[in-house]
Write a protein that binds this DNA or RNA. Structure first.
Length: 590
DNA sequence: GCCGTTTTCGGCCCGACTGTTTTCAGTCG
């Protein structure tokens, strides 16, 4: 078994133990163990097991070492099999219902024979749940509502959609006279491609009016919690938003804590402990357990930390941008002053993958160019679909030639300051050939090669297909490498390591498709690939003028991937891009 | 189940909120 598979087993054990009402600290030990395992490298795990040194990993004791070793060598764990057999499988689903934890599930099972969502629903409808000790009418209603909305509530949301809801809320909070500071935290602030719920953090002089404003926001469908300093609401889409209000001197610590990620926070706390300090959402204080809460509060005030930079500095670190706080080595890099200077939205000078009404876009060439000019871009690449993308009104050779001529004429007219590059998003056919002949391709400034059909080929076929396209001398960049649609469609099966190797070897760019549904290549792959020389282009894949703004999502992903300005072609000035494209063409046999 | 300048037992983060209670247990983050 691989380490991630083993970690999944440990996590499942934790869930099952929790359901059985086991000691919560034992449950946590399994969760901690799973995380510790994920943090070591695959080969390292094999070595540690072989040398019987797995126990030296913090969080892995005698029992976990034995279980991990058994899983790693045999692929099975008798303890896990027995545990699974002792728990009704439907009970695991019950844990997902808000308001239900292990204790209540135990009671429901013991008193009412509830073993899954169906039997719980029946018991609620009969009123048997409300009659139980410790339960009541409200709990019963809440459980029914939770069951009904389970799917919508469990759903994640695109960063783009979540940000559109969150930004006016932050603005609204800051406008309140009682509010001193307000930020959105959580995975939204870390610019994750999808977001589970929204976390708002506020420091205020008076809390009641802030809570009152929050629960009365337009679009709120349901207030799920409301207290003095905390509130939770649910929007129509199922998106949940949490508000927390803290004293201003605590704001920075709470902001850091609720921005996360969990792994980042764990590592930060460990670092603090190693320096005799204890870090939490409440503050940074000496780690010794002595002293009353009041004394600790005094200590907090004495060592004032005004912003996150000072918080990181207090632990001997350079500022770590929220996007990098994933527990993936950013703390070590910050210690050594080796954090990359991340690309910014304002660095962008243009984009290459955009559509017009010639294929399936909703704005004309002139409209798209005007919009690019309004954004201050020096250049805009038009890449409409090729002829095989019949469903997208792809251009045949004659229509493409006409479009190229239009683009040349538009540039000559000097109507816009923005230069337009004539390109095409050329289908990579099922066998890896491109959708136009070489002469047609040679008439273009650049070529984005993309897969649009036969998405379910096996991995070897798809990989060979894409690599063949990369090897084509006229291919400038690879479009949306995996074809994934976040929350909707899985990525195609493709060996990205080989694709990246081929792109580097042939000097082909891989696009970071900035469509909020794609963000493809995934940010997790960029740091290593760019370090090896892969050049990135942030392309919005815009089908209308509003779509050009999606580059912001692309910048988010690029930043999470640790990319610098230099590594992103679309930040380069026009002259340098032209020279780069010309040099590529020169290498190409005419 | 893990951990130890409290070293083999007794902690392990803990405060806020809800719904049910009449002083608190369970859940959540």
């Amino acid at each position: 078994m691989t380490k991630n598979e083993i970690a999944d087993v440990l996590t499942e054990i934790a869930t099952l133990l929790e359901l059985k009402g086991e000691n919560p600290f034992k449950v946590r030990a399994y969760q901690t163990g799973a995380r510790a395992l994920e943090a070591i490298e695959e080969a390292e795990l094999g070595r540690l097991i072989a040398e019987e040194k797995l126990g030296t990993v913090k969080g892995l004791g005698e029992a976990l070492v034995q279980k991990i070793t058994e899983l790693h060598t045999t692929g099975r764990l008798i303890f896990f099999d027995n545990l699974k057999a002792s728990v009704e499988p439907g009970l695991v689903d019950l844990l997902q219902i808000p308001g239900l934890g292990p204790k209540k599930i135990q009671v429901l099972k013991a008193k009412l024979g509830v073993t899954d969502i169906a039997s719980l629903t029946a018991a609620c409808h009969d009123g048997r749940v409300a009659a139980l000790d410790g339960f009541g009418e409200k709990t019963q209603e809440k459980l029914l509502a939770g069951i009904k909305n389970r799917e919508a509530y469990g759903k994640r949301h695109l960063w783009w959609d979540a940000a559109a809801i969150a930004e006016p809320i932050v603005t609204g909070l800051r406008a309140l006279p009682q509010v001193r500071r307000a930020e959105a935290a959580g995975s939204l602030r870390r610019s994750m491609e999808t977001v589970g719920d929204l976390d708002f953090l506020v420091s205020a002089t008076d809390v009641a009016p802030v809570v009152a404003w929050f629960v009365a926001m337009p679009g709120v469908k349901e207030v799920t919690a409301q207290g003095e300093t905390k509130a939770s609401v649910r929007f129509e889409s199922g998106l949940q938003a949490d508000l927390r209000i803290v004293p201003d001197e605590q704001f920075v610590f709470a902001l850091h804590h609720f921005t996360g990620s969990k792994d980042h926070n764990v590592q930060m706390r460990q670092r603090a402990l190693a320096r005799g300090l204890s870090l939490s959402e409440w503050g940074l204080v000496p780690a010794d357990g002595e002293g009353t809460a009041k004394e600790k509060a005094e200590k907090r005030k004495s060592g004032k930390v005004e912003n996150e930079s000072e918080l990181f500095a207090a632990l001997g670190l350079h500022f770590i941008p929220p996007e990098l706080r994933e527990g993936l080595g950013e703390i070590e890099a910050a210690e050594r002053a080796e954090l990359p200077r991340l690309v910014e939205l304002g660095d962008l000078r243009g984009a290459f993958h955009n559509h017009t009404t010639a294929s399936d876009g909703r704005n004309t060439l002139a409209e798209m160019t005007a919009a690019a000019e309004a954004l201050g871009w020096d250049y805009l690449g038009i890449a409409d679909h090729s002829k095989s993308s019949y469903q997208a009104n792809g251009l045949d050779e004659a229509r493409l030639a006409k479009q190229v001529a239009e683009i040349r004429a538009l540039n000559d007219s000097k109507k816009f300051k923005t230069h337009v590059f004539a390109g095409s998003e050329v289908d990579i056919l099922a066998d890896g050939r491109l959708d136009y002949d070489d002469a047609t391709l040679a008439s273009l400034d650049y070529v984005v090669a993309s897969v649009h059909n036969a998405l379910t080929q096996d991995e070897a076929t798809m990989t060979a297909r894409i690599i063949r396209a990369i090897e084509h001398p006229r291919t400038t960049m690879l479009g949306h490498a995996t074809g994934r649609l976040l929350l909707r469609r899985e990525a195609s099966r493709v060996d990205l390591a080989k694709v990246i190797d081929a792109a580097i070897a042939h000097g082909v760019i891989i696009e970071l498709n900035a469509s909020p549904w794609r963000l493809d290549l995934d940010w997790r792959l960029w740091r290593k690939a760019a370090g090896r020389g892969l050049l990135c282009a942030i392309n919005p894949d815009a089908h209308e003028i509003e779509g050009l703004r999606h580059v912001r999502a692309g910048i988010n992903a690029a930043r999470k991937g640790g990319l610098t300005r230099e590594q992103v072609l679309t930040t380069w000035p026009l002259k340098r891009v032209r020279e780069w494209l010309a040099a590529r063409s020169a290498k190409t046999p005419a």
